[in-house]
Every structure is written in structure tokens, then in C-alpha cells.
Computed example of a mutant assay.
Amino acid sequence: MRHIASETSGLIVPRECPCGREGAFLCTRCAGLLRVPPVRVDAVCDALQIVHRSRLRETPEGPAGVDHRALLPVLALGEYSGDLQRLVLGWKNGGLAHLARPMAQGLAPAVAMLCSGAQAPVLVPVPSRLEAQLRRGEHHTGELARALARCTSARSSTVGLRLGHGQRGHGARERRGRSAVLTGTVPGGGPLILVDDVVTTGSTLRAVVQALRAGGAEVRGAVVVASARLPAPAAVPGSSR
């Protein structure tokens, strides 16, 4: 009966994965993209880099220069390209709300990595600009945070935040200068973990973190579905180029 019902519904609403494969709303191959170990990507987010220390002269630790560290750790499931990009766009702009659950299940290990042994975190969705929410008809990162809370020990909570200018049409320097204003109260009960769809330069995360920390919040990190870039694989000692 379940098979008959599935086949009948497929005649009414054709089942097609965002990658174009027919027969399922999420094919096996694309589902596998959401079940990979999360990777840290903050090192390739330029806007998240802050000066850690500087050396005026060469030392045993390295030559003269400036060392940077990330404002916060950011974990992603993969690079924003190919089928993963199609999944994100289908969920974000194509009305494929059913993808929030498998994305949340894929990000659950990332939440555990950020708050291992700590108090249960509070998941805070990174807000979209109002016009984007009106165009999509929903707050998609809020849906992702709620789905993520259902498959972890965390809880989700929205925070009143107003973002400055958007990303599109702005250069790297303007993006880095993006701002956010806290318009509500900071949720209590545990450290905060930000939830977003894609990270590019990290300027939006930087603005939100600064606004939340200015309001007294402890922001432990961020989880995103995809990153515009991934760190280069670590070189294997003794390998040739």
C-alpha cells in the first residue's frame, strides 16, 4: 500500500531531486553530500580574520609579520558548488522546504563538535534582509535552526537583529564593513551557535557576532550548509609537489 501511494503521488507531483535526477525528492547521491563530516572553513573567510599577534623581527616562531586567527569557528558540509549548490538554492529559493530536515541532520555533528561537553547551546538563525524574506515567503534559516534543534539537544531562538547593506553588488572591502544592530534581547540558557545557509567572506557572521557579543552573549561558533571556499588539504610530510 505504501508503494502504491508513493507511485500515485508521484504521478500528481513528479518526484525530482534538485540535481535533476528523477524518482525521489532527494536522490541517494545528493543525500550523501549532507552526510559528510563537517569541516572548519573559518580560515578561508577573510572577514573573520583578526590580528592575533605581530613580530617586528624574525623569531624562532617565524619571520617578521602578522599572525591572524578567526573570530569564531565555522563548520560547513562542503563547497558551494555543483549538486550541493543546487540543493541550497532549491531549498532557499525554490520552495523545497523538505530539504531543511536532511540538512539539519547533516549539521547535527557540527553542533556537537562546537559544544562538546558544554551546556546545551541555543541555535540562532542568521537573519535575511526583510525584502529577501518577503520574496521567499519564509525565514529559511529559522526553519533550518528549528529542524536542527529537533535532532540535537539544542534549542532554537530568534534574536532581533537588523542587518546593514546586502552582499550583492558590493566589493570585498564593503562586505567586510557590513554592520548589524541588535534590536531585541539576547537569549539566555547556554552559549549561542549561529545557523546560516552559505558563508562567503564571513562579513555577515562577523557583523552578527559583534552585535551579539556587544549585547553580552557568548557566541561559540557557527554552522553553515556550504562555504564558498574550502581550506586547501594539509600537505603530507615528505610528499613531492
Rank of each mutant, 00 (worst) to 15 (best):
R2C: 04
E7R: 00
T8I: 12
T8Y: 06
G10Q: 02
L11Y: 02
I12K: 08
P14I: 06
E16T: 13
R21N: 10
R21L: 07
R21M: 07
E22M: 13
G23L: 06
L26R: 02
C27I: 03
R29Y: 09
R29W: 08
R29G: 06
C30G: 07
R35Q: 15
V36P: 09
V36G: 10
P38Y: 02
V39N: 05
V41C: 04
V41T: 04
V41L: 07
D42F: 01
D42Y: 02
A43S: 12
D46E: 14
D46S: 14
A47V: 04
A47T: 02
Q49T: 04
Q49H: 08
H52C: 12
R55H: 12
L56F: 14
T59C: 12
P60G: 13
P60W: 15
G65T: 01
V66F: 12
V66T: 15
V66D: 11
H68W: 14
R69A: 14
L71F: 06
L71K: 01
V74D: 03
G78H: 01
E79A: 15
S81N: 06
S81G: 12
D83Y: 07
D83W: 08
D83V: 13
Q85K: 15
R86I: 04
V88R: 01
G90P: 10
A97V: 15
R101Y: 06
P102F: 03
P102K: 00
Q105A: 12
G106M: 06
A108W: 03
L114H: 04
C115N: 04
V122N: 00
V126M: 05
P127Y: 09
R129S: 07
L130C: 05
R135P: 02
R136L: 14
G137W: 09
G137V: 03
E138L: 15
H139D: 11
T141R: 00
G142N: 02
L144R: 01
L144G: 01
C151E: 11
R155W: 05
S156T: 01
S157E: 06
L161P: 02
G171W: 08
R173F: 10
E174S: 15
A180D: 07
G184H: 09
G188Q: 11
G190L: 01
G190M: 02
G190V: 00
L194Y: 01
V195K: 00
V195P: 04
D196P: 06
T200A: 13
T204Y: 11
L205I: 12
L205E: 10
E218I: 03
V224G: 04
A226F: 03
S227T: 04
A228F: 08
A232C: 10
A232V: 10
A235K: 13
V236S: 11
P237V: 11
P237R: 08
G238D: 13
G238P: 10
R241P: 10
